[in-house]
Nucleic acid binder design. Structure first.
Lengths: 139, 139
DNA sequence: GTACATGCAAAACTTTTGCAGTATG
DNA sequence: CATACTGCAAAAGTTTTGCATGTAC
């Protein structure tokens, strides 16, 4: 049931090959922990060609197994998607240690409907990132 | 009271010089309307050096007169900040025509406090982008 | 007159692509 | 064994920097 199995299985289920470079990149991302940039993955997997790192990460994004997190300053990092809420969730980002926590909010959705009414938009999706200090950085 | 005056005044108030290239870039951004990328500004102001376009846009970001909008696919565009709510607001983005509308939501803030409690984070700021189709694209 | 700002060209990055060779299913 | 994938190197694209010159205040 581990995340590991699921991702590898997602790949083959979708008809992609489980190659050694892909395994390496996946393991690297797992090893990098909470979040990472393309550059970090690249640096941590020197045996994999640069192009392959980018290609693999692009594929993972398409498959939804990693999700983009936009930082306070507008830069983007990535995170292995928590499989329980791979579909829809948001991020709380610690501006001190960089830790990213996922969360889902039901109460939010009602609020969004109100905005939809006001603006006349039909809302499909949204992105919400919260920035602050996590419990341990705050003490 | 126009946005125009305000930005120019902000510059001098903060000790920056009101140079001709800066005026050009500002006017270009105004002319580009709702939102724009660095590349679009650059292309629309051929008489200004590339480096200056970037330097000016960076300065404008720092001064808060333009704000970053993250699109559905993770790319970033910019928008002249609506001065009434230059402090804090969110964006509704039409995925069809690209139109960006700003809005503020009070109801949202309470929801965020709940998340703060749950996660143990102390939230400082947040970023919220809604994606959908605007009234005219939806008809 | 003196900082501050500009333009240019070069440098530093980041990401993509073409292609011949390799290995997965 | 067909073809999807890889690695490399080159290309393309984006943002930054150094420095001599120009100019707003």
């Amino acid at each position: 049931m581990t995340t590991a199995d699921t991702i590898e299985r997602t790949l083959s289920r979708r008809g992609y090959r489980l190659t050694s470079p892909r395994r390496t990149v996946l393991d690297t991302m797992r090893g990098l922990g909470n979040h990472f940039t393309a550059e970090e993955v690249q640096h941590a997997s020197p045996e994999v060609g640069r192009a392959t790192v980018f290609r693999t990460m692009k594929l993972m994004r398409e498959l939804g197994v990693i999700c983009q997190v936009v930082l306070d300053d507008g830069t983007a990092v990535y995170q292995l998607a928590d499989e329980d809420r791979a579909d829809h969730h948001h991020h709380v980002i610690c501006t001190e240690c960089g830790r990213v926590t996922e969360f889902a909010s039901d109460g939010l959705e009602g609020e969004l409907e109100r905005v939809a009414d006001e603006t006349g938009f039909e809302i499909d999706t949204h992105r919400l990132e919260l920035y602050g200090r996590c419990a341990s950085c705050n003490s």
